Amino acid sequence: MVSSAQQARFEGKVAVVTGGSRGIGAAVARRLVREGAAVAVGYRDDQESAAALVAEVRAGGGRALAVRADVADPEQTGALIERAVAEFGRLDVLASCAGVEHFDTLDRITPADFDHVFAVNTRGQLFAAQHAAAHLGEGGRIVLTSSVSASKAFFGHTLYAASKAAVEAMVLNLSAELGRGGIAVNAIAPGGTATDMARENGANYLHPDLAGKQDLSEWLEVGVALRRLAEPAEIAAGYAFLASADAAYMTGRTLRIDGGMF
């Protein structure tokens, strides 16, 4: 629910959302549009979903465009941001939501796995921040994406978790640098969220010793205080908060939204 006071928090603002065609990214794009922003939706493969989201926004009177950009290629990310600025005249917010999942044990991780996961989850976010910062002015906001896995162990999740822990280190250190220009940079660390990625990988979060003894819903009952997965819109609310003036004195931090995971 967005209150009437919140509906104009991003009036006249422009946001770029990477990974914006589905899941948390699509929810972030919708939330920012509802609060008045024009949004450039970055996507890699799912052109149909990106186009449908843009059509939905425009049908409701909002402003949006979809741009294909693989964040593993910094040049494509730069082109996405340049296109947003050319179309809407400015940039105020980067919400970096693109990411890839990975599960495997140490003995099976390959250099190619490392390069792919870090290219998207870490390098991709660093250079998205770099390209965005070149256009952001005083009051600009960068919101990157970490994960609860950066601070909670899961079997076979080492490579993914490392790629996300690096993001938390990036926002901590970038805050000192970007703060000189009045730009705030933070991250969201989502817990389990009801997305396509969760449906494809949810069972992997269970320890292999529990295979056949417990399913994900049973684990949620005892491992998460609110006893369920988050809805993408609930995670998107955190991005909107960090992107808004309500978080004007918050930078260099990672906001964990996990339903009370323990």
Score class of each variant (00 low, 15 high):
residue 3 S to R: 10
residue 10 F to R: 07
residue 12 G to N: 15
residue 12 G to M: 13
residue 16 V to S: 03
residue 18 T to F: 07
residue 19 G to V: 05
residue 25 G to D: 10
residue 31 R to P: 01
residue 34 R to D: 09
residue 35 E to I: 10
residue 35 E to R: 14
residue 37 A to I: 06
residue 40 A to H: 03
residue 40 A to F: 11
residue 51 A to S: 10
residue 54 V to L: 05
residue 56 E to C: 04
residue 59 A to N: 15
residue 60 G to Q: 06
residue 60 G to T: 05
residue 64 A to S: 14
residue 65 L to Q: 10
residue 66 A to Q: 04
residue 71 V to F: 08
residue 72 A to V: 04
residue 74 P to H: 11
residue 89 G to W: 11
residue 90 R to M: 12
residue 94 L to R: 03
residue 95 A to D: 08
residue 98 A to N: 05
residue 106 L to P: 13
residue 107 D to K: 14
residue 107 D to R: 15
residue 107 D to P: 11
residue 109 I to G: 08
residue 115 D to G: 03
residue 117 V to M: 06
residue 119 A to R: 15
residue 137 G to I: 06
residue 140 G to F: 01
residue 143 V to Q: 08
residue 143 V to S: 05
residue 153 A to I: 13
residue 153 A to V: 15
residue 153 A to L: 13
residue 155 F to E: 13
residue 156 G to R: 06
residue 157 H to W: 09
residue 161 A to D: 06
residue 169 A to S: 13
residue 173 N to S: 12
residue 177 E to L: 05
residue 177 E to N: 02
residue 179 G to Q: 02
residue 181 G to Y: 01
residue 182 G to N: 11
residue 183 I to R: 06
residue 185 V to D: 01
residue 188 I to S: 06
residue 189 A to S: 14
residue 190 P to M: 05
residue 191 G to E: 05
residue 193 T to N: 03
residue 209 D to C: 01
residue 210 L to P: 08
residue 213 K to D: 03
residue 214 Q to G: 01
residue 221 E to Q: 15
residue 226 L to E: 12
residue 236 A to E: 08
residue 242 L to Y: 04
residue 243 A to I: 01
residue 244 S to H: 09
residue 247 A to L: 09
residue 248 A to E: 13
residue 250 M to P: 00
residue 255 L to H: 00
residue 259 G to D: 03
residue 259 G to P: 02
residue 260 G to W: 07
